[in-house]
């Protein structure tokens, strides 16, 4: 591929792929810049808070750090923008503005062409709202469903299935050489956040004296998540009455991670069973898991075994779960014919 020459012309165009996620949002641009942020947007609660944090709006980690002084929004909680909630729409807009600013050249006079991947559920109900939110910052844009962007990025265009395991939702999508229809897609709500809640409950039951919060739980999950057989015991430090103490949480992590599996396996089987019987085998042998949840160790093997009862199954994990969606969206942007951009 020829690298685009960086002329300083006023009408220089920047192609971006954006993955708008419940938990994390990422952007990937054709100037080779890639950035991600936690999908948090925070506005200072009052003028004192405004003074303390020093800026009118905060994003991602910065927002989480100052959360006590902020009105915090996670605009795509549960995978959708809440209808009619102006602040959530505003938060989506700010988040997109922020993402674009991360990859834009300092001059900021480039014309942006964007492909935005959003959770499948949100694509169904909020696509117009999202389009509206991005329209302000982009010359032209396309909105697509997130698992579809992932599929396009990894070249799984025909007879393939993508399972995108996010924080708020697990999105399923069958690809068969066209834009997936609604019946080729499915969403379940037991995803990453659900694992956190389960793990929290299990640990509270087993170690009532231990002192932890959801943030710590999320970190434990991200570092140690697994399903099936444990490679080694999972031991973490959790304070008890102010004293850091080592706790064995192997069993709890396993139970929490496995809590999302039944719904996942069931949805996969149902979706495949509904598909043209001639191609069911081919799809089963071309399953791709993506999203943060694809990092759960042992997951691919577990799914291969569970779904394998219905026929030979092959499950692979995307190489870069963090940027899989954004890269896929960028790929779409790059290959989108010029007339489509201008006609839109």
């Amino acid at each position: 591929m020829v690298k685009k020459s960086s002329t300083k012309a006023a009408d220089e165009k920047l192609l971006v792929g954006i993955d708008l996620g419940t938990s994390r949002s990422a952007i990937s641009a054709d100037n080779r810049k890639k950035k991600w942020v936690e999908s948090y947007v925070g506005w200072p609660r009052d003028f004192i808070a405004r003074k303390v944090v020093g800026v009118p709006i905060l994003f991602g980690d910065e927002a989480v750090k100052h959360r006590l002084s902020l009105d915090m929004y996670r605009p795509l909680k549960n995978g959708v923008i809440k209808e009619g909630t102006a602040r959530d729409e505003e938060a989506v807009k700010e988040l997109i503005r922020h993402l674009i600013s991360l990859v834009e050249s300092a001059k900021g006079d480039t014309k942006i062409r964007a492909v935005v991947g959003v959770p499948a559920e949100s694509f169904k109900v909020n696509k117009v709202a999202i389009k509206k939110a991005v329209a302000e910052f982009a010359e032209s844009l396309f909105v697509v469903s997130e698992p579809f962007a992932v599929a396009y990025g990894v070249g799984a265009l025909d007879n393939a299935m993508v399972i995108d395991i996010g924080a708020g939702t697990v999105d399923f999508c069958i690809m068969h050489g066209t834009v997936p229809l609604e019946e080729d897609q499915r969403t379940v709500l037991t995803a990453g956040d659900y694992i956190d809640q389960q793990l929290f409950t299990f640990l509270k039951e087993r170690y009532p004296e231990a002192d932890f919060n959801l943030n710590m739980i999320r970190r434990f999950k991200e570092e140690h998540s697994f399903v099936g057989k444990a490679d080694k015991d999972v031991e973490v430090e959790i304070p008890v009455e102010g004293k850091s103490t080592v706790h064995d949480i192997t069993e709890e992590v396993k139970r929490a991670c496995e809590s999302i599996l039944p719904a996942m396996v069931e949805s996969t089987l149902e979706l495949i069973a509904k598909f043209d019987p001639e191609y069911q085998d081919a799809i089963r042998e071309n399953i791709i898991i993506a999203g943060g949840g694809s990092q759960i160790s042992g997951l691919a093997e577990y799914l291969e075994e569970a779904i394998g009862e219905y026929g030979p199954t092959k499950v692979r994990v995307v190489e870069d779960p963090l940027y899989g969606g954004a890269d896929g969206a960028l790929e779409l942007a790059k290959e989108m014919p010029e007339e489509y951009w201008t006609e839109l």
């Binding site: 389009k131 329209a135 050489g177 834009v179 989108m336 006609e343 839109l344």
Partner: peptide, 21 residues
Amino acid sequence: DAILQGVFEENLTMSDPHAQA
């Protein structure tokens, strides 16, 4: 090609964001 055209058509049917804004 077919997919890109599909994406284009799908997005074309969404209402014009500029007018809406």
